[in-house]
């Protein structure tokens, strides 16, 4: 992975059925400059291939975390280094 001046390399992590549908637990990606929010990132991921399309088909039900803190779809990515996507939690 290269990290040029105009790219922002971050770690994406996937959990539960999001992980299974994407087929990866984590990966490094270079974010395009026009992806500014969590919701925009999900749209961008959807377009990356069939597995992503399947995982992010209903982005409204997917939860996200920025640097291990819950974040809404309209949250700006800012300088986050790690972004996670997962289904609503079912612990307890």
């Amino acid at each position: 992975m290269t990290s040029g001046q105009n790219t922002n390399t971050i770690t994406l992590r996937y959990f539960a059925w999001v992980r299974e549908k994407v087929g990866l637990a984590e990966e490094e990606v270079s974010l395009p400059a026009d992806v500014a929010t969590v919701g925009e990132l999900m749209k961008w991921l959807q377009a990356r291939g069939e597995t992503y399309q399947a995982a992010f088909a209903k982005p409204e039900i997917i939860r996200a975390a920025l640097d291990q803190t819950h974040a809404r779809a309209d949250a700006p990515i800012g300088s986050a280094r790690e972004i996670a996507f997962f289904p609503p939690v079912t612990g307890g």
């Binding site: 539960a16 059925w17 996670a84 997962f86 939690v89 079912t90 612990g91 307890g92």
Partner: peptide
């Protein structure tokens, strides 16, 4: 805890299938 802590449960059935 039930709505904030990131845990996910997957259940397996006798026929070998499982689901989140």
């Amino acid at each position: 805890l039930k709505s904030h802590a990131p845990f996910w449960k997957k259940e397996a059935r006798p026929d070998g299938t499982c689901s989140w």
